[in-house]
């Protein structure tokens, strides 16, 4: 297999040359339904999102707060499966080249089959995969399969990570490093946790990979603050809150786009 150029690092590279940071937006595949998830992705791209993090719903999302749990539940009610998510990405690729990272838990990936998952992810046009309950110690097999297919495996670092973990994750990860800004589950928070800048600085001593920061970032002002400290800003629950609020409304797609545009503006001031 020919090694593919990572579209993820490519995006960070070209943003860097323009002096910008990446806006990474999280949505759940199939919430409120697959058709609108497709429309929302295109709208997010128009609004300035640089990377889409697409959640594969799971029945027992231990790392997530109530907002994303509820979003997963809505998607599962629509019978979303890992196979339908892969088929969906393939469909999105007819209309958009925006980098897509699949975000999820290990059991659905394991049940689907690691090799089959890696292969179909590449065929669908998936750029990266992030599995929250799969630390490098257990990820050897999936890492091998994804590498064969040229799909990035993104690992996390957290406030509890010491130098040894930073080294491990830097050596094993690809695409970018996802720094979890706080000890806790996903969810919008009023106050931004401290220590992000210091952590990113420490991580840079171990890695050349771009560092994206997520968890708890909920408004344009916070996105702007994080953008000054890291290479990318991940916003999840705050976007899901918009989806939740407008899930029965006709203008849901526009509402989500408008919020993403505000985030992007917040990052460029």
């Amino acid at each position: 297999m020919k090694k593919r150029e990572s579209r993820l690092t490519g995006v960070f590279e070209s943003l860097k040359q323009r002096g910008q940071k990446a806006l990474i937006t999280f949505i759940t595949a199939g919430d409120p339904d697959m058709k609108r998830t497709g429309e929302i992705i295109l709208e997010l791209e128009r609004a300035g999102s640089d990377i889409i993090e697409l959640g594969i719903p799971f029945s027992d999302p231990m790392a997530d707060g109530p907002t994303i749990q509820a979003s997963y539940d809505r998607a599962l009610k629509n019978n979303v499966t890992i196979a339908s998510v892969l088929a969906f990405v393939k469909d999105v690729r007819k209309k958009s080249d925006i980098p897509i990272v699949l975000f999820g838990y290990y059991n659905p990936v394991f049940a689907y089959g690691l090799r089959k998952f890696a292969k179909n992810a590449r065929l669908a046009g998936v750029d990266g995969v992030l599995v929250v309950d799969l630390p490098p110690e257990e990820a050897g097999e999936l890492e091998k399969e994804l590498k064969t297919e040229g799909v990035d495996l993104i690992y996390l670092l957290t406030p509890t990570s010491d130098a040894r973990r930073m080294k491990l994750v830097s050596r094993r990860g690809s695409g970018f490093i996802y720094y979890v800004s706080l000890t806790g589950v996903t969810g919008a928070r009023k106050k931004l946790p401290g220590g992000i800048a210091r952590f990113v600085r420490q991580a840079r001593a171990f890695t050349d990979l771009p560092v994206g920061v997520g968890f708890g970032i909920s408004n344009p002002r916070q996105a702007g603050m994080v953008a000054r400290q890291a290479d990318g800003v991940v916003v999840g629950s705050a976007i899901i809150n918009v989806i939740e609020r407008y899930k029965n409304k006709k203008d849901i797609v526009k509402r989500v786009g408008r919020f993403a545009a505000q985030l992007k503006r917040g990052m460029s001031v």
């Binding site: 231990m62 790392a63 290990y106 929250v132 309950d133 799969l134 630390p135 110690e137 257990e138 690992y155 996390l156 670092l157 957290t158 406030p159 509890t160 990570s161 010491d162 973990r165 994750v169 979890v180 000890t183 806790g184």
Partner: peptide, 21 residues
């Protein structure tokens, strides 16, 4: 040492908890 009973067991948890375990 890594907590495996054959192919079973292990540590499938979020990175935040890895240092704790």
């Amino acid at each position: 040492r890594s907590g495996h009973f054959g192919k079973y067991g292990g540590r499938y948890i979020s990175e935040t908890l890895m240092p704790a375990v």
